[in-house]
Design a protein around this nucleic acid. Structure first.
Length: 462
RNA sequence: GGUCCGGUGGCGGAGUGGCUACGCAGCGGACUGCAAAUCCGCGUACGCCGGUUCAAUUCCGGCCCGGACCUCCA
């Protein structure tokens, strides 16, 4: 199936063709581990996880790299505030990130490089840039010289003068050009750093990704590079400049990365999330409100390039959608799922620039077919297709029974079953008053009963 | 100021030059002891003004409104 992806470089949907047939390389900017992940951090992780799942179903091999930035001034600030080494901070928040991602159904990437593990490669890359005239040392800093790379600004669609005109920061006096950016900067007393040819210091943010891509995916063109919309400028623009200039001889005129994909922001109740507004929603807190799959579905309910307005209503909606899908699956408990791929209509939605809202509609169409199907073979086919479609989105991976009931062996479950038995007896005696009393009593505790085909089942209220 | 993205029914949110998005909520019916679930059916829509067209929510132009980025940021 032909896959089309929106490429920020051209601002159009392009047919996706990997450099090597059957093998896709993908790099996504991962977290800077100085705090707990918020819902905005979760969006790219989930979106590109869906892309990864889909590509893995279409290509023999997907090499997926998502980095961890564990060298950063915000990390330094957090460590200083707590009076601990930066490793304590980064380990804590990386572990929390992994836990959050697991809850959202995002498995670890194939490769998860850390900046601290790539300092020699970063230094080596900077040396290469100095050697071929694209970078220079000045007052213990090393700077990338933007005018040395005429294509600078192509990704973000801005020219150098515009960037300088709009700059909000003062230009450091040691810069040859106002647009030049830092590759290496000195670490004063008490700030973490490493020895380098330019003295004790630490890398700038942008060079980290370039070096980690080089080290883990080679210098040859990367197929897909993803990240948040805000990274287009300056982060990805600078990455292109660094990687292209450092590898000029090796790329053979090809772009350093072929497809650039950027997800839109998550707003909260129509406002941008920010610390000053106090509306930053952490994934770990949202997990108390709804199952991870519901959070995931909420993130996939809008197209990845659109802004997503997060709200309690939206999250409840996502949970309700999953309830409907799991109810259909619940009726197929005793049906053997056929070994089938997701339907073409579903895969076509994902192949069209990852149209997850459309894909979800197709999933609902399958659930609707399940609810109507009588033929056992058809039910088996539908179950297979539904589970395959769910797997591509990272949804429907729970057991339907536990989705609705939680832990079946709990004391409460036993008690509920006993109440249902008493109600069954009352119903047999046509004692509707008693029957309804028991049902109301359970409902007051958030337990809903359903009498289907002579059998009473229960589930927890949404 | 520059660059870019949007404005779709009560809500969320796809999409299309003429034909049902989908989900939630609502209404009617079937089923049920009554419900719930499920099924069938229904309603409400494409910011404003022009233009192109046999036909525009969909293309073009203008306007209004909202948002993002402009070297901290997913």
């Amino acid at each position: 199936m032909d896959i089309y992806l929106h490429n920020t470089l051209s601002r159009t949907k392009e047919k996706f063709v990997p450099v090597q047939a059957g093998r896709v390389t993908m790099y996504v900017c991962g977290p800077t581990v100085y705090n707990f992940a918020h819902i905005g951090n979760a969006r790219p992780a989930v979106v590109f996880d869906v892309l990864r799942r889909f590509l893995a179903s279409e290509y023999a091999e997907v090499v997926y790299v998502r980095n961890v930035t564990d060298v950063d001034d915000k990390i330094n600030a957090a460590a200083k505030a707590e009076g601990v080494p930066i490793g304590v901070i980064t380990e804590r928040y990386l572990a929390a990130y992994h836990a959050d991602m697991q809850a959202l159904g995002v498995p670890p990437p194939g490769i998860e490089p850390k900046v601290t593990g790539h300092i020699p490669q970063i230094i080596e890359m900077i040396q290469r840039l100095i050697a071929n005239g694209h970078a220079y040392e000045a007052e213990s800093h090393v700077l990338f010289n933007v005018p040395s790379y005429p294509d600078y600004g192509r990704l973000s669609g801005r020219n150098r003068d515009e960037m300088i005109a709009g700059a909000r920061v003062d230009v450091a006096p040691y810069k040859r050009d106002a647009a030049d950016f830092v590759l290496w900067k000195p670490s004063p007393e008490g700030v973490p750093g490493w020895d380098s040819p330019w003295g004790f210091g630490r890398p700038g943010w942008h060079i980290e990704c370039s070096a980690m891509i080089d080290a883990n995916l080679g210098s040859g063109p990367v197929d897909i590079h993803g990240g948040g919309h805000d990274l287009i400028f300056p982060h990805h623009e600078n990455e292109i400049a660094q990687s292209t200039c450092a590898n000029s001889g090796r790329l053979g005129g090809q772009p350093f990365c072929r497809y650039w994909m950027h997800n839109g922001f998550v707003n909260v109740d129509a406002e941008k999330m920010s610390k000053s507004l106090g509306n930053v929603l952490l994934v770990r807190d949202l997990r108390d409100q709804a199952p991870g799959e519901a959070i995931r579905l909420a993130l996939l309910s809008a197209h990845y390039r659109q802004p997503l307005d997060w709200s309690d209503v939206g999250l409840r909606d996502a949970k309700a959608q999953l309830d409907r899908l799991y109810r259909a699956l619940e009726t197929l408990q005793d049906v053997q799922a056929a070994d089938l791929p997701a339907p073409d209509s579903f895969r076509a939605a994902l192949a069209d620039d990852l149209n997850t809202p459309k894909a979800l509609a197709e999933l609902h169409a399958l659930a609707n077919a399940v609810n109507k199907a009588i033929d056992p073979d058809e039910r088996g086919r539908l179950k297979g297709q539904m589970l395959a479609a769910g797997k591509l989105l990272g949804l429907l991976e729970q057991n339907p029974v536990s989705w609705f009931k939680g832990d079946e062996d709990s004391g409460e479950a036993v008690e509920i079953e006993a109440a249902i038995e008493r109600r069954k007896a009352a119903r047999a005696a046509k004692n509707w008053a008693e029957s309804d009393r028991i049902r109301d009593e359970l409902a007051a505790r958030g337990i809903l009963l359903e009498d289907k085909a002579g059998i009473t089942t229960w589930r927890r209220a949404p």
